[in-house]
């Protein structure tokens, strides 16, 4: 799984952090997405896909 985020698109809703805090965080200053783990382990990939799916700004891309 290849995970990338577009911080220009991010609107800081926090849905990804809510769903998978092990993989996503928000920058303490600007509130936008940060990736903590760009190669999430197999057991976490389903929730990463879900997080990408619910991102309101389409800022998360997952390639497999």
């Amino acid at each position: 799984m290849e995970l990338s985020v577009d911080r220009e698109r991010c609107v800081g809703a926090g849905m990804c952090v809510l769903g998978v805090p092990e993989v996503f965080d928000q920058d303490a200053e600007d509130g936008r997405v940060l990736v903590l783990d760009a190669e999430p382990p197999p057991g976490r990939r389903a929730s990463v896909r879900l997080a990408a799916g619910v991102c309101p700004a389409g800022a998360i891309t997952v390639r497999e």
Binding site: G12, G14, Q26, D27, G31
Partner: peptide
């Protein structure tokens, strides 16, 4: 506007 505000409404 949104960018000025989101840092204040993060999950954390």
């Amino acid at each position: 506007y949104r960018r000025l505000l989101i840092g204040s409404f993060t999950v954390r």
